[in-house]
Design a protein around this nucleic acid. Structure first.
Lengths: 243, 243
DNA sequence: AAACAGTTTTAGGTATACCTAAAATTTAAC
DNA sequence: GTTAAATTTTAGGTATACCTAAAACTGTTT
């Protein structure tokens, strides 16, 4: 169970409020994500990701440090503490469960759920989280192919490799499409049949934003400049080969 | 459509935030509820209902007045403007839809949904509201018997009469049980079969918190001091008679 | 090793939403 | 109609989460 933020700042106004941890949770989630790429995480990377000014990041980091949610060394960077990671993973679990639920139970489109989940992830009670997970049969992956952390913080492994590392001719399966890609692109990919699980044959790969030609379930498709290198980047390793 | 709070305070930090109208919405909802009993609404009644100090209420009222959401006269009281009422009704609609949804779709108990709804009511998007309403078949009443305002702010009439105004011997139907009653009481009432829709025969009525004896679907039950006068207070008028 | 560019931190300021305590006003009592 | 009680408002203070602008630090280049 994640540490109760309400208990972390005794006497502060947090105690009463019970609902203003949005910012803290968002920062922890951001730091978690950025740590996956590179750790420790710099102030400027957080500022970029959260679209706030570096000064704001520094003061929030100092607060997170006081709360023992991150390890912080001036001019060097931050890493999550165990307590911080626990909260980050719970928020991510909420986010992905909500996305899946909105699609499965309420008929939302693949491309409509990210914003909604970004808000709801902070206000889902333990009870509601459990009921949603149960209704979905405790799924391990969300509709974008991202793994849903378990209540204990376990993450089903995906063994990502980069598409840019695939030689033409490799066979691949779309395993993940970032849920924060813009709607237009998500719909475009959906129209092409590119959802997580789709099998494809890599015919031609440009290292960055250039053309990418693939064979989707037997049919050859060119996905042009619309597909940034970051979009179809991660594929199940059993099909890909490292550079 | 309710006025967009984000548009009401141009240049302020509200504009960016997009999610800190909790307090405003809660005050408007509170004022709406209190106006049903008596209008205008005094500072102290709001302070009581919201469990904050009178000084805090005054400054919030002044802000709501500046935003043209309430009419305010010093030392006299507040009433909602049309814009304020529109927001209040939308929040109430959200609250009651969410309560019903949690019970119907996710198997929550009658007594567990109030808290959850108090939070979710502020973060439900128009889209989600619509999908939930559709999934429930656009219901007019929530599980506590309260009417759910339509998107246009229309409220199905209930024609309340007070139970204390019923003569012994009157036949009645439980039409409403406040959703903010404590869980123990709600479960107790549920065990007695007292949910909205239950037919009962009034055998003996004390004006306030005293004993209340009723015949429920043929079986005689005494509901003792557990039932405050405010709990079973409102009954469908066709069964009751005014004082 | 000094200068420069880039990053990061500090300092000071805004708005929200609460608080306490004192002052002002209204209502009720005599 | 003055006084007392209750309510309401004002004044001043806290914490959050952002901002801008200036100062401090890092790392590289010359």
């Amino acid at each position: 169970m994640a540490p109760d933020l309400n208990a972390l700042a005794p006497g502060s106004s947090l105690q009463r409020n019970g609902l203003n941890h949005q910012a803290i949770e968002d920062y922890l989630k951001t730091i978690y994500m950025l740590e996956q790429d590179k750790s420790p995480v710099s102030t400027s990377r957080i500022a970029d990701a959260r679209q706030v000014k570096p000064g704001s990041v520094t003061s929030m980091i100092q607060r997170l440090n006081r709360l023992n949610l991150v390890n912080y060394e001036k001019h060097y960077g931050v890493t999550l503490t165990d307590a911080g990671r626990e909260i980050a993973l719970e928020v991510i679990r909420h986010h992905r469960l909500v996305e899946l639920y909105l699609i499965e139970a309420l008929g939302f489109g693949w491309d409509e759920v990210h914003q909604e989940a970004d808000i709801l992830e902070h206000v889902i009670s333990e009870q509601l989280e459990e009921r949603i997970a149960a209704a979905l049969n405790n799924p391990e992956f969300d509709p974008h192919g991202d793994p849903i952390p378990s209540k204990e913080g376990q993450i089903a492994s995906m063994n990502y490799k980069h598409l840019t590392a695939l030689d033409p001719g490799a066979r691949a399966v779309v395993s993940r499409i970032p849920d924060d890609a813009d709607s237009e692109l998500l719909r475009y990919l959906g129209d092409l049949g590119l959802i997580p699980g789709t099998k494809l044959m890599v015919l031609d790969v440009a290292p960055f934003d250039g053309p990418l030609t693939v064979e989707i379930d037997g049919e050859s498709k060119i996905i042009g400049h619309k597909v940034a290198s970051s979009v179809l980047v991660e594929l199940k390793s059993e099909f890909g080969r490292s550079r």
